[in-house]
């Protein structure tokens, strides 16, 4: 029943700078089923945005996919030429970027920019395309779309621009939507609106979504599956319940501990993850999290751990999960809120 729409296998992406090779993504694998919403969580420099650009094949010089496979609907797109990607990008895979202020072209109207995608990929006439553009604007909740369609981006506020971006991304009914920090630049109330919109659209169009963010709160609401990235590697992968209620990797636990919980009455001191992320020009030999991990052992700094399967959907990369590892008392950071039934 669950058809795999995207499968990434051992993807490695590097940037070749004058200082040396920056290994932004160092061998990650995950898969996404049709209609699934997956969250990729990680801090800046974890490789989450590079992953999305690799899938879109939008890496700019000096970035390059070093090795690995990306299967989209069963086809490997790593070796596809730019010309072939043009038919996939925008049509079958669409993307929403972080900054709504710069991701729209200021000299074309919103309508023109939506129509461009529709005409390019669906070959509709100009008139039909305009009707569709208006429909799309209505779908993403822009009031009076008939008038708004001929507005320029500067006449839109930040939240409306992000809606317009969503309208462009969804206008060809893509099978996969990649949203790279779509709400980071927005206010909470607007973020709330956009997340609701994405949930609605998922239900209406059955699009698969990859949501990239550094905010665990954002993924908790709409993602069914979560991938936690650190230092160019997937640290832990599981359903959202696995990640929030049964984290197995100290980094995931650290993330959970470092955010204050508004809904819980307590006002405890936050437990931050100390230190800073590793320099990926010289990635650490062992586990990249060793330097910041409160449970780090000798082996962590010397050898990279393998994935341990916790159950069918849940796996983590940590020596603590090895059968020989000493039993350590850990603060998992899980806080369960009161659910009002």
């Amino acid at each position: 029943m669950s058809e795999k729409i995207l499968e990434v296998k051992n993807l490695k992406t590097s940037f070749y700078t004058h200082l040396g090779e920056v290994q932004a993504v160092r061998g990650i694998s995950f898969s996404l089923n049709k209609g699934e919403v997956m969250g990729i969580v990680g801090e800046s420099g974890s490789g989450k945005s590079v992953t999305s650009l690799s899938i879109m094949k939008l890496l700019q010089y000096p970035g390059e996919i070093k090795s690995g496979d990306i299967f989209f609907k069963g086809e490997d797109i790593v070796n596809k030429k730019n010309k072939e990607m043009l038919n996939i990008r925008g049509n079958e895979i669409a993307m929403i970027f972080q900054d709504p202020m710069t991701s729209l072209n200021p000299v074309y109207t919103i309508g023109d920019q939506i129509m461009e995608v529709i005409i390019r990929h669906q070959g509709l006439s100009k008139k039909k395309a305009k009707e569709k553009a208006i429909d799309m604007l209505r779908l993403v909740g822009i009031p009076s779309p008939e008038e708004r369609v001929s507005n320029y981006p500067y006449e839109f506020s930040g939240g409306m621009r992000q809606r317009a971006m969503a309208a462009i991304a969804l206008s060809c009914e893509p099978d996969l939507l990649i949203a790279d920090e779509p709400t980071t630049a927005l206010d909470v109330t607007i973020q709330d609106q956009i997340l609701k919109l994405m949930k609605d659209l998922k239900e209406k169009l059955d699009t698969s979504i990859i949501l990239i963010t550094h905010d665990l709160g954002v993924v908790a609401d709409i993602c069914t599956k979560i991938v936690v990235m650190y230092g160019g590697l997937v640290m832990e992968e599981g359903t959202s319940k696995d990640i929030f209620y049964n984290p197995k990797h100290p980094y995931t636990m650290g993330l959970l501990k470092s955010i204050p919980r508004l809904d819980l009455g307590e006002k405890k001191r936050l437990i931050p993850i100390t230190g800073t992320p590793p320099d990926l020009i010289k990635p650490p030999k062992g586990c990249p999290f060793t330097a910041r991990c409160p449970y780090a052992m000798k082996i962590c700094s010397l050898h990279a751990p393998k994935y341990t399967k916790i159950d069918e959907n849940h796996k983590a990369m940590c020596w603590l999960l090895h059968k020989q590892s000493p039993n350590m008392k850990m603060d998992t950071g899980v806080k369960r809120g009161i659910v009002n039934e």
Binding site: A220, D221, R261, L262, K335, R336, G337
Partner: peptide
């Protein structure tokens, strides 16, 4: 109410 809560059941 707009603040996302990192707890799937609650949210």
């Amino acid at each position: 109410s707009a603040i996302p809560i990192p707890d799937p059941d609650v949210t």
